[in-house]
Design a binder for these strands. Structure first.
Length: 532
RNA sequence: GGCCCCAUCGUCUAGUGGCCUAGGACACCGGGUUUUCAUCCCGGCAACCGGGGUUCGACUCCCCGUGGGGUCACCA
């Protein structure tokens, strides 16, 4: 059964560094040269081994809000040569989804966020899944009980709900009222015998609770807003608050970054932490990401899961760059950042307190820029990764072909656009479809001028010696000049003949991708269509 | 509703009392380059939530109002 030794065991031999938090004067900082804090530092930052953690609950795959938090954890750890830990918070057995853990790991990896310790990385402070740490939590709960800092309670959820309803009806806050005399072990036994639930509540100090947040400054929760919250559920498992505080301490986490939804609940953590005798970590809460209507981002808004962006043809570099700039900026006018650039430039002191709206147009713009900037190798790798999520016939092409496709589509915004542009090329020569509007405009207009032009140029194309984009392009230019016509006069008919529509890569590139034989076949097929 | 937090172009934001006639980027509008789509280039439109203070001087500091968000679980 749980004993104090279990507690000692999990913190044995691990010196706890005291972070320079909890300093009084919060605003503004005059000496935040390290960029880590807007507040005066009491300890040189270089002396502290920073350890951040991302602690998702495995209820689904990673969404952009989680990705942003994880990115901040990664960046802070990396900037200061610290470590980032990944812990899975699965104390709620009902909502647990095992596949979610693998998905989260894959999403983080795709984004380029590397975990130093924890699930998927190992380490000496495990296990890193809360579902495997029950004894540790129970030991701490028992310790609190033994020291008179926590007590048992037997209310049923129904009774609690009734109390809340009553409070609401009277327009006053519901706060759990502590019994005059705390239950004894005999009361516990009696309750159990009666079949009543047995939970444990923290005996909260009745006082205002203050703490310093690195982005929001000093936060104070009035005493009348706190109460004796539950730390152990009826099923014996700890609540989020207890498990979280215990784990952060024993795992050596000293810098907590998380969403702003926890800001108003942090008082529970400080009270718990103090009852447990743990030193204070530094806190930084990140403002939330909203949809374009200003509401909390949800699945109703479409792609909010990282994996969906991957499947939609976005580059992880672009997503990371965009997300990093949601609520943070370097202070100058740079906007283009690699992960390494971010790690160097990122400063908690420059993180905004305002919620940010997730603007897909801007994400698209970043993606376009990144697609143009990425080295050919990396771009090819990303494209291959994208193709692996589709059922496109492109997925079977060799690297040389894929590279040629990418080059032919330079200026593209997203991988799905590349796919759309070259799709006709990778269909059978008698299978791609003609866009009626394009046929009318490029072929039929002017009493079949387009068809006539195709017939005229076919022999010249056949006579072409070099089948390279450059040679084809030169020939087209020379032909237009010799016949005193504009480029469009042959370009439009050729485009329709080659791909059936009015958009796609440049014609020479398309022809090279097709090969001479297939290009000719397509032109012939198109000519044969005349008069049908 | 109580409590906590926030408030500059449509969006992300710069701004730490005079450098602000408020800067950049995306979007949008106009023009240009281009054989198509896209890219790219040039130009333009566009904001300090309101009211009181403080000050010689407020986008910047204080107060109130308004608006928005978060949170008030045996979920995390």
């Amino acid at each position: 059964m749980p004993s104090p030794t279990a507690i000692e065991a999990c913190s044995a031999g691990r010196p706890i560094t005291i972070p320079a938090s909890n300093c009084k004067k919060p605003w503004p900082a005059s000496n935040s040269r390290d960029g880590l804090s807007r507040f005066p530092l009491e300890i040189e930052i270089s002396m502290i081994q920073i350890k951040t953690r991302f602690a998702p609950s495995p209820t689904g795959s990673l969404h952009v809000g989680g990705a942003r938090t994880a990115l901040a954890c990664y960046l802070v750890a990396k900037k200061f040569g610290g470590t980032m830990l990944l812990r899975i918070e699965d104390t709620d057995r009902a909502r647990h989804q095992e596949e979610a853990v693998e998905k989260i790991l894959a999403d983080l990896a795709w984004l380029g966020i590397e975990i130093d310790e924890g699930v998927g990385a190992g380490g000496d402070n495990g296990p890193y899944r809360q579902s495997e740490r029950l004894e540790i939590y129970q030991a701490h709960i028992q310790k609190l009980l033994d020291e008179g800092k926590a007590y048992y309670a037997f209310d049923t959820p129904e009774e609690l709900e009734a109390l809340r309803d009553a409070a609401r009806a009277e327009k006053r806050d519901f706060k759990y009222s502590r019994p005059q005399t705390l239950p004894t072990q005999a009361d516990v036994d009696a309750a159990r015998a009666e079949g009543r639930p047995v939970v444990v509540r923290l005996l909260s100090d009745k006082r205002d609770v203050s703490f310093v947040d690195e982005v929001f400054g000093e936060i104070t929760i009035p005493a009348d807003q706190t109460d004796d919250f539950i730390i152990a559920k009826g099923d014996g498992w700890p609540t989020y608050h207890l498990a979280n505080v215990v784990d952060d301490h024993h795992m050596g986490v000293n810098f907590i970054l998380r969403g702003q939804e926890f800001l108003g609940q942090t008082w529970r953590h400080v009270l718990l932490r103090e009852a447990l005798g743990f030193p204070a970590p530094r806190y930084a809460h990140l403002a939330l990401i909203m949809d374009m209507k200003g509401r909390k981002l949800s699945k109703r808004d479409g792609d909010v899961e990282v994996d969906l962006f991957r499947r939609a043809g976005y580059l992880p570099e672009a997503l990371v760059n965009f997300i990093a700039l949601l609520g943070w900026n370097p202070g100058d006018e740079r906007e283009f950042f690699t992960m390494d650039d971010l790690a160097e430039a990122f400063e908690i002191s420059r993180v905004s307190k305002t919620n940010a709206k997730f603007d897909r147009d801007k994400l698209m713009s970043f993606n376009t820029d990144w697609a143009a900037a990425l080295e050919a190798d990396r771009l090819l790798g990303a494209f291959t990764d994208y193709l692996s999520t589709t059922d496109s016939p492109l997925a079977d092409q060799d690297e040389a072909t894929l590279s040629a496709v990418l080059a032919a589509c330079s200026g593209f915004r997203r991988f799905d656009e590349v796919l759309a542009k070259v799709a006709p090329i990778f269909m059978a020569d008698d299978a791609y479809e003609y866009d009626p509007k394009a046929v009318k405009k490029g072929l039929e207009k002017g009493e079949g001028a387009g068809y006539a032009r195709l017939e005229l140029i076919l022999p010249e194309i056949e006579a072409l010696g070099d089948w390279t984009a450059e040679a084809i392009h030169n020939w087209m230019g020379a032909y237009c000049e010799a016949n005193e016509i504009g480029f469009g006069k042959i370009g439009q008919p050729m485009r329709v003949a080659l791909a059936g529509g009015m958009f796609g890569p440049a014609i020479p590139e398309m022809m090279v991708l097709l090969g001479k034989e297939r290009a000719m076949a397509r032109i012939q097929r198109t000519i044969a269509m005349r008069g049908e």
